Computed example of a mutant assay.
Amino acid sequence: MKTPSFIFFSIVLLVSILTGVLSKPYFTDRVFYLHEDVYKFAGAQEQDQLITYHSSMAEPIQVRIDDELHRTVVIGKQSYSIADKTANFSTSYRVTYPNGHTYKVEDNAGLLLSYDDKGNFLIYNEVYIGGERVPQPGEEDFPPSALVTAAYPDYHIKRGMPGFLFLALGMLIYGWCGFQYRKFQDWTFRLSPQRLNYVDPEPSDFYYFMCKVGGLAVMAGAVFIAFKAF
């Protein structure tokens, strides 16, 4: 007959393997965001001069590498030109829109800051109503910094914090041990500093009850931590 511990650890092992296999692309693929859509690499052609990025909820984006200093981001039927204007250890880009508007994007320690043609700093506060973006007066279809991010893979990022999954696994095992095993409960009692106040103290029934309650609480917390990884 299979014991509760055998069933528990078998389930934990199975779920851990499935989570590791299924979530690997989520944690390892480099992505970028445009509005609320996530894009990741889908393929390259023409000797890697035309790169395509796909999103599950929006139309594809293509990035054409024109030369070492110029790239074109193609979204739908619109093309956005990106020129690398880096000079004197200052990384910056000029973004030209189909309507002729130009913007400057500066790389400030990895943070892309946008400026209009008069040098004014731009702040984009995107407004959504019912899941649909509502453009504000004078606002471009896409922020200049987002277009630069799409054009250069160096600005693409990895999602999530996989370390939380390992933390959750440890908490889950610790919680189960605290809930299920009397020897583990006795061990935690011996480590408790409160026992130093008594001569030959022994755990009470209430202590064992609280160990079970605490174990359940820790396992519930482990599930919460696991979801925080994504």
Results as ranks from 00 to 15, higher is better:
E202R: 14
T102F: 03
Y208W: 06
G175W: 00
F41I: 09
E46V: 09
V73H: 02
A109K: 08
S55M: 05
N125K: 14
P203A: 15
S145F: 02
G100T: 01
I129E: 14
Y39V: 08
S16F: 05
K2N: 00
Y198Q: 14
K85R: 13
A151F: 03
P144G: 04
H156D: 10
I51R: 01
E68M: 05
P25L: 13
D37P: 07
G138L: 00
Y174W: 11
V74H: 05
G76N: 08
A226C: 05
I17T: 11
D37L: 08
E126W: 13
K104H: 09
S114P: 02
M219N: 02
K85W: 08
L196S: 15
E68Q: 09
Q49S: 14
T91C: 07
T72K: 14
F184R: 01
K40L: 10
G170T: 01
P4C: 07
P162Y: 01
K158D: 07
G175I: 00
T96G: 09
S16D: 07
A109I: 12
A83K: 12
N125M: 11
Y115P: 07
P4I: 09
M219A: 02
K158Y: 08
E139K: 02
Y198H: 15
V95N: 06
S204Y: 13
I129R: 13
K104W: 09
T188V: 04
L14W: 11
F121A: 15
